[in-house]
Simulated assay, not measured.
Amino acid sequence: MNQTTYQAAKTASIVLEDHFKDLIAIALEKGEQKIASIPKRETIEVIINVAFWASLRKEEGRAPKISISFLSPEEAEEPLLFGVRLPFNTNTITKLAPGIERAGVHLGVWEENGSIYIWGTTLTIPDYCFVLDVSEPGLLVIKHRRLYGFGKYTNVAILKGDEIKIIDKQFGFAKDSPSVVTALLDLNSPCSWNNGVNVLIQLAVSMRKHQQGGILLVVPPHSSDWRKSIVHPLSYPVYPSFGSLARLMEDYVNDTTEIQWRVKLYNEVENIAGLTAVDGAMVISRDFNVYTFGAKITRKENSKTIDTIIYIEPINGDEATEKFIGEVGGTRHLSAAQFIYDQRDSLAMVASQDGHFTVFSWSETAQKVQAHRIDTLLI
Rank of each mutant, 00 (worst) to 15 (best):
T5I: 15
T5F: 14
T5N: 14
Y6V: 12
Q7A: 13
Q7T: 14
A8Q: 13
A8S: 15
A8W: 01
A8K: 04
A8D: 07
A9D: 07
K10S: 14
K10E: 13
K10A: 09
T11E: 13
A12T: 05
A12G: 01
A12M: 01
A12L: 09
A12Q: 01
A12N: 00
S13F: 02
S13Q: 00
S13T: 01
S13D: 02
S13R: 01
I14C: 02
I14Y: 06
I14A: 02
I14P: 02
I14H: 03
V15S: 11
V15T: 11
V15W: 10
L16I: 11
L16F: 08
L16T: 06
L16S: 06
L16K: 05
E17A: 02
E17K: 05
D18V: 07
D18W: 04
H19K: 09
H19I: 08
H19G: 02
H19E: 09
H19L: 08
F20G: 00
F20Y: 15
F20P: 01
F20I: 04
F20C: 02
K21V: 12
K21E: 09
K21D: 08
K21A: 06
D22F: 03
D22V: 07
D22A: 11
D22I: 06
D22S: 10
L23A: 08
L23H: 06
I24M: 06
I24G: 00
I24H: 00
I24P: 00
I24Y: 00
A25G: 03
A25C: 05
I26V: 11
I26H: 04
A27S: 10
A27T: 02
A27Y: 05
A27C: 07
L28V: 06
L28H: 06
E29H: 03
E29I: 03
E29F: 01
K30R: 13
K30A: 12
G31F: 04
G31H: 03
G31T: 04
G31P: 05
E32P: 01
E32Q: 09
Q33G: 04
Q33V: 13
Q33A: 10
Q33S: 11
Q33R: 13
Q33D: 12
Q33N: 10
K34H: 13
K34R: 13
K34A: 14
I35E: 00
I35A: 01
I35Q: 00
I35G: 01
A36F: 10
S37A: 15
S37G: 08
S37Q: 13
I38A: 05
I38R: 03
P39K: 09
K40G: 14
K40E: 15
K40S: 15
K40Q: 14
R41L: 06
R41C: 13
E42F: 11
E42H: 14
E42D: 15
E42P: 05
T43M: 10
T43E: 15
T43P: 02
T43Y: 08
